[in-house]
């Protein structure tokens, strides 16, 4: 974990309201793993005050660059979107834990919704490179929200839209449910996105007796495990009531979470 001054290499829109930003990664900083995140100090003035957390969406070992995919939401992300190539960037990373690798005979089902795309995409590409055949399932409301992504080599990308304007007509979980139990027999589920989708993925995994990892999100202050501000509530059978998303997560076994 280091706090470094980086430089923006590129910024581009990849879907309606979604940006992808690439920035320099220092030689000496440890390589981020899929699921890990960073925080960005967006500016010097105290509004907005806190650093903003984003999951890594890619890492290029040769170019020494990393990327994030983010949704333009409020003050902080609007300011971020206004930055240009060449602008400095204050980054604290890599933070948190990462997705665990599937067994060789497991098919990774990677489910993303909304701002959950970044970490899932990074993981899918890493698995693809390593010879796994990941299925990346991305669900959104309609066609204009579908990001422009290069295809995977061994795996594939399945888009789903609520209104049927592109890809599968229905949610990502509807899509998974449409798969036969033979197709998902040796699947391992990974998910990141809105809470409703995460819970649906958990329920799906439970119903088919699959293991499921989920990357969570909570409002953060320190991002390094010191303030106890970013907790999620754990299931009754766990040995403690709360866990910190920034340090104990963001990736959790979905059955350890208390889903409400």
């Amino acid at each position: 974990m280091t706090n470094f001054k980086s430089e923006i290499l590129s910024q581009k829109s990849i879907a309606l309201g979604y940006m992808e930003m690439t920035f320099r990664w220092p030689e000496e900083s440890e390589k981020p793993k899929p699921g890990q995140f960073l925080t960005i100090k967006i500016q010097e003035q105290p509004v907005p005050l806190l650093r903003r957390p984003f999951a890594l969406s890619g890492f290029d070992e040769e170019q020494k660059s990393a990327s994030i995919i983010y949704q333009v939401r409020g003050t902080g992300t609007k300011m971020l979107a206004a930055l240009k190539a060449g602008d400095p960037l204050d980054v604290l990373s890599p933070l948190g834990n990462s997705f665990s690798l599937p067994a060789v005979d497991e098919t990774p089902l990677l489910v993303a919704g909304g701002i959950g795309l970044g970490p899932i995409l990074y993981f899918a590409r890493e698995l693809d490179k390593a010879g796994h055949s990941p299925v990346l399932i991305f669900g959104c409301r309609e066609k204009s929200l579908i990001p422009d992504l290069p295809p995977l080599t061994n795996g594939r990308i399945q888009f789903c839209t609520d209104d049927g304007s592109a890809g599968f007509h229905g949610s990502s979980v509807d899509y998974m449910n449409s798969l036969s139990s033979d197709e998902t027999g040796n699947a391992k589920v990974y998910s990141c996105g809105p809470t409703g989708m995460l819970k649906a993925c958990h329920d799906f995994a439970l119903s088919r007796d699959l293991s499921c990892e989920t990357a969570m999100e909570e409002m953060m202050a320190c991002g390094v495990g010191a303030c106890m501000g970013c907790v999620v509530e754990l299931a009754e059978d766990q040995d403690r009531k709360y866990a910190r998303v920034c340090k104990d997560g963001p990736v959790f076994q979905s059955r350890t979470i208390k889903w409400t």
């Binding site: 509530e233 403690r240 709360y242």
Partner: peptide, 17 residues
């Protein structure tokens, strides 16, 4: 164990915990 969540909210030039 501490308080239920959410535990943080940002405010103009500040935060509430």
């Amino acid at each position: 164990p501490g308080n239920p969540l959410p535990r943080l909210v940002e405010t103009p030039a500040g935060m509430i915990n």
